[in-house]
Amino acid sequence: MEELLQVANLVANKLNSRFEGTPEQRWSLQALKLQEEAGEVAQAVIGALGVNPNKGHSHTWDHVRAEACDTALTALVLLHMMGGDPEWFLAEHLRGIKAKAEGWEATA
C-alpha cells in the first residue's frame, strides 16, 4: 500500500507541474480521468463476459483487474493532487467505511 501511495504522489506531482490552470481545473480534469478509467473497467467486464456481439470475448478477468488497478491509482492521484494530507484523509475515510461494513449483517 505504501508503494501505491508513493506512485500516486509521484504521478500527481508530475501532472501538477505540467498544468498551468487553477487547482480546481486540475482536480476537475483528474476527476474526468477517473471516470474514463472506470469506463475502461466496465468495457473490460463486458469483454470478459463476451456480451458484446461485435467483439465477443475481447478481454480476460486479468484485464479487469488491471483496469481496476488503474482506476484505484487514478483516484489516489486525485486525492494527492488536492493536497492536504492524502494518506491521513484516506485512512480516516477507510475507518468510517470499515465501521459501517462491520455492522452489516451476513447474508446466506
Rank of each mutant, 00 (worst) to 15 (best):
V45P: 03
A68C: 03
L90H: 13
D70M: 12
N16T: 15
K100C: 06
N13E: 09
L90E: 12
G47F: 04
H63Q: 03
L73A: 00
V11G: 09
T107N: 06
Q30A: 00
E40R: 07
I46R: 01
E37C: 05
A99D: 15
E37Q: 08
M1G: 11
A38C: 12
E2H: 08
A68M: 09
G103N: 14
E36L: 06
A75P: 03
E3W: 04
S17K: 02
W104D: 08
L29H: 00
K98L: 04
S28Q: 14
W61G: 00
K100M: 04
N54E: 12
H80T: 11
K98F: 04
A75R: 02
K33D: 13
L78N: 04
P53W: 05
H59D: 05
V7L: 14
E102A: 01
Q43P: 15
M1C: 12
L76C: 00
Q6F: 11
V51Q: 07
L32D: 14
Q30P: 00
Q25G: 10
G39S: 03
K98V: 01
R26D: 05
V7A: 14
A44S: 05
T60N: 10
L78S: 01
A91M: 08
F19C: 15
N52Q: 13
K98I: 02
A99S: 14
S17D: 07
A38Y: 09
F89V: 00
E87V: 03
W27F: 10
A42E: 06
L78V: 09
G84V: 02
R65P: 13
K55Q: 07
L5Y: 06
E20P: 13
E87G: 01
H93G: 07
R18Y: 13
Q35A: 05
L79K: 05
F89D: 07
Q25N: 11
